[in-house]
């Protein structure tokens, strides 16, 4: 996990974001345990309250659950919910891309061409 200490974004948000991504992309499956808040704090060399807040945010979103005495576990993700999450992310990314395109002065055709090229590269 990569965290940036000196940016404006609170560290707990960075952790939550990265864990959220791992859960939504299926890297972390339902039932997988998360590292204990203190073990994670030790690994990332941050305070315990930071990891705890990150986990609490994920718990509030329904992505993980705290089990008394055992720690946090990933919740089994609804496939449709996952798809919707990804759809939302796609829309966010595309909005960003459109913004950049407008600044660069690119038209819709140019953007679609770039999209096709990148899509084929990946496939």
């Amino acid at each position: 996990m990569k965290i940036y200490q000196n940016t404006n974004e609170p560290i707990y948000k960075q952790i939550a974001a990265q864990l959220r991504e791992q859960i939504l992309t299926g890297q972390l499956q339902g039932g997988d345990p998360l590292p204990s808040i203190r073990a994670l704090a030790q690994d990332l060399r941050i305070s315990v309250i930071t990891t705890m807040k990150a986990y609490e945010e994920l718990s509030a979103e329904g992505l993980v659950t705290a089990t008394k005495g055992k720690g946090y576990f990933v919740n089994a993700q609804d496939a449709q919910l996952l798809a919707e999450q990804h759809m939302r992310q796609l829309e966010e990314h595309l909005t960003d891309a459109i913004y950049s395109a407008r600044i660069a002065g690119m038209g819709l055709d140019e953007v679609q061409q770039t999209l096709a090229a990148l899509w084929n590269m990946d496939a």
Binding site: Q5, S36, R38, A39, A41, Q42, R45, I46, S47, V48, I49
Partner: peptide, 30 residues
Amino acid sequence: FREYLAARDGERSVLFSTHNISDMENVTDY
């Protein structure tokens, strides 16, 4: 401190005093 806390997860606590917190911010919870 982190090692001490992690060894008995949740059952151990640390209290320390300081007049300059800047070097210890990354470990301070409360």
